[in-house]
Design a protein around this nucleic acid. Structure first.
Length: 268
DNA sequence: CGGATTTGACCTGCGC
DNA sequence: GCGCAGGTCAAATCCG
């Protein structure tokens, strides 16, 4: 009887050890996921910038070669220096009304003009988060697709997106909203698996799918019920991840760059 | 009432 | 020099 009790206790201890290991592993995976997520965000931002530059080049091609482009003002900063253009898809019920592009900064509208090449009005914004911020933004609907806003940024912010220099706590919510709307930023050049240049970019799905969802609550049910399933799922998930060369490469690069604090983004 | 937006007037650069 | 078009200003208006 005592021997049976002892072996049972041993089993419980083993299970508890397993549980601890799993929790540690889970924590490690989550940390890695966070690192990957942040790196992914940085990558996407860089990608957007690159695509916007590409779009600028495309806009000078026939079909986009509007009269306005011939009339580039001398005050305009060269594209490769400080001017950046992004495309943002707006909600379908938003057509023709709002010229607001949520990008995390606060903008004050100072003018609106109908241009010759586009029937939609162009709105002019100045950054109002910092009094001396030189950044200006022009927003106009795409002539070809009115659900798409073309935002052109001139200059560089002399403050961060949180407005931390001003100590503005409200900006964090704005930033959250901005992150939400950034998901709608369009990559003008075609993406893989995407023949429509105006469809949103294929988002990198870094949220763990079924196995992860399972392992978020494996211990809410009885240990007997779910332990094997969740353990198998985690093991399965871990195995699938480690077998994926892309994952290991990306993970290695992400960890390396997070350690050195010198991201080598082009290598991922 | 104060800040944001609207909108017509004005300024500036470019092409003819 | 003139006209055109993009960009900016600032008074009026709106809105919370």
């Amino acid at each position: 009887m005592e021997a049976a009790h002892a072996s049972c206790k041993e089993k419980v201890e083993t299970l508890q050890d397993d549980l601890k290991c799993l929790r540690k592993e889970n924590e490690t995976l989550r940390f890695m996921l966070d690192v990957m997520n942040s790196k992914c965000n940085i990558l996407q931002a860089h990608l957007q910038e690159a695509k916007a530059r590409q779009m600028d080049i495309n806009l000078t091609q026939p079909g986009f070669n509007h009269e306005a482009n011939k009339r580039a003002r001398t005050s305009e900063v060269p594209i490769h220096n400080k001017t950046q253009r992004i495309l943002v898809r707006t909600d379908s019920d938003d057509h023709g009304n709002s010229l607001i592009v949520r990008d995390g900064y606060q903008w004050r509208k100072y003018g609106q003009k109908v241009t010759k090449d586009n029937p939609s009005p162009r709105a002019y914004f100045r950054c109002s988060m910092a009094p001396a911020c030189p950044v200006k933004k022009k927003v106009q609907r795409c002539r070809e697709d009115k659900s798409v806003l073309v935002a052109t940024y001139d200059g560089q912010h002399n403050h961060d997106v949180h407005g931390s220099s001003l100590g503005d706590s409200s900006s964090s919510s704005d930033y959250t909203m901005a992150r939400g709307s950034m998901a709608n930023i369009i990559s003008p050049p075609r993406m893989p698996n995407n023949n429509d240049p105006f469809l949103p970019p294929t988002a990198l799905d870094l949220t763990l799918s079924a196995p992860h969802q399972e392992n978020r609550r494996p211990f809410q049910n009885s240990v007997e019920d779910s332990h094997n399933n969740s353990y198998n799922n985690i093991a399965e998930y871990a195995a699938s991840l480690t077998k994926d060369p892309n994952f290991t490469a990306a993970l290695a690069a992400a960890v390396a760059s997070s350690i050195t604090q010198q991201p080598k983004l082009s290598k991922i």
